[in-house]
Nucleic acid binder design. Structure first.
Ligand SMILES: [Zn+2]
Length: 276
DNA sequence: CGTGTTTGACCCGCGC
DNA sequence: GCGCGGGTCAAACACG
């Protein structure tokens, strides 16, 4: 009967371990969610940072990158002032990955938008949607275009145009509520499902000193995604604490599909290079 | 009934 | 001028 007892105790152990595992899994999920929220915050902050930097640099690079490449510091400003009027209309492009393939093109970025048009474009089967900031009647000039990416329809390309002259969403709490109980309209981030790549367009490579960091938040995939990477991560999280994130990143960069996606995204973000 | 989306018409710049 | 492509308008419509 020793054997039997050993067996039952073993079963007990298995049970508790399983329970442990389950709780850890839940914790993992919430952590994932929080990570995603952080990533989104980070992305947004970075976008803002880019904008401010662009502002500080006086949009010099913006116009310079737009094909008139005669660069003489004083001329530039004159030209800019002359032709660009008071509002420099910064544009920035961000790539957003959405897991649901059919979704209507809504990039929730904390602002509220009103759609005012949709067009089919020449070289992209999916239509392009035009949005205006809903504060437009109050004088906010910001517009954005959203279109699915040509080759990777799970990506949305959002092109922002202009700057908001008001705060992010005066009333509704924007996309980031500090915890999981966000019962907002669209803020649904079910189990981590979105990855953003932000690449502020006006910065080509000429500007080595300021390399626009491509903010990539890892696609924290939901339960549907059975990527082997998840297992790695889970193992890491179980074995150790968050110390192994770097290893995770390493595993990520070794993942061919990930690197391919990244390469595609980067290539897409640099039409100049692409053409050359 | 107010509000936001749809969708074809319209406009405008550009190359031929 | 004409056609094309991208951007916007606004009437109709959907929805609460
Ligand atoms: Zn606005």
């Amino acid at each position: 009967m020793n054997n039997m007892e050993a067996h039952t105790s073993c079963n007990e152990k298995v049970k508790t371990l399983r329970a442990d595992l389950e709780s850890l899994r839940k914790e993992n999920e919430t952590l994932r969610f929080k990570l995603e929220v952080m990533n989104r915050k980070c992305n947004i902050l970075q976008a803002h940072l880019q904008e401010t930097k662009a502002q500080q640099l006086g949009m010099i690079d913006l116009t310079a990158s737009r094909s008139n490449s005669e660069i003489t510091s004083c001329k530039r400003s004159v030209r800019i002032i002359e032709q660009q009027v008071p509002t420099p209309t910064k544009t920035s492009q961000i790539l957003v990955r959405t897991n649901s393939t059919d979704n209507s093109q809504v990039v929730k970025d904390g602002y509220q938008w009103r759609k005012y048009g949709q067009k089919v474009t020449k070289d992209n089967p999916s239509p392009r949607a035009y949005f205006r900031c809903s504060m437009a009647p109050a004088g906010c000039p910001v517009k954005k275009k959203v279109q699915r990416c040509v080759e990777d329809k799970s990506f949305l390309v959002a092109t922002y145009d202009g700057e908001h002259n008001h705060d992010v969403n005066s009333h509704v709490p924007a996309l980031i509520r500090d915890s999981l109980s966000s019962s907002d309209d669209e803020v649904v981030l079910p189990k981590g499902s979105v990855a953003n790549i932000i690449y502020p367009e006006p910065y080509p490579l000429e500007n080595h000193s300021f390399r626009p960091s491509i903010a990539l938040d890892l696609s924290l995939s939901g339960p549907n995604d059975k990527s082997p990477r998840n297992d790695v991560v889970e193992n890491k999280l179980h074995n150790n604490n968050c110390n192994d994130i770097e290893e995770y990143v390493a595993s990520l960069t070794k993942d061919p599909s990930f690197t391919a996606a990244l390469a595609a995204a980067v290539a897409r973000s640099m039409p100049h290079l692409h053409a050359a």
